[in-house]
């Protein structure tokens, strides 16, 4: 039997076009041996949830720098739950003030990675949290 491969959806919700972080994360996860599906820019939470389900990913990584995270991140989690896919791990990154983190965690975002976080930390988190 083949070893378990972690599949990750790297998604850019909202209108923000800054994808440097998302691309770096995508490459780092690939180099860590994961299969990464990249959605490209300007995805609605509905599109992200649909892609996550169809691709049967273990993890969804959301990247956003525009400040709309409190609106968009929880929406993705909620839609996944509605699609019976609440077991998919959702993590987020970007310019996110510390003060917003508790709210996001309460709403199902497993972890928030703020600017300056090494990719190794995200990889470690994903590897240890995907059952």
């Amino acid at each position: 039997m083949a070893e378990k491969l972690i599949r990750v959806l790297v998604a850019k919700p909202g209108l923000d076009g800054h994808d440097r972080g998302a691309k770096v994360v995508a490459r780092a996860l690939r180099d860590a041996g994961m299969e990464v599906i990249y959605t490209g820019l300007r995805q609605t939470p509905e599109q992200i949830a649909a892609a996550a389900v169809q691709e049967d990913v273990n993890v969804v990584c959301l990247s956003l720098l525009s400040g709309a995270h409190n609106h968009l991140f929880p929406k993705v989690v909620q839609l996944l739950k509605e699609k019976d896919a609440g077991d998919i791990l959702v993590v987020g990154g970007g310019v996110i003030p510390d003060a917003d983190i508790p709210y996001l965690k309460e709403n199902g975002i497993a972890e928030i990675f703020t600017p300056g976080t090494p990719t190794s930390k995200a990889i470690e988190f994903i590897t240890s949290h995907v059952q």
Partner: peptide, 15 residues
Amino acid sequence: YDSDDEIAHGEIGKV
């Protein structure tokens, strides 16, 4: 997009 466009939700006045 205008501010009343569905896609603008959550982004109005942010950046």
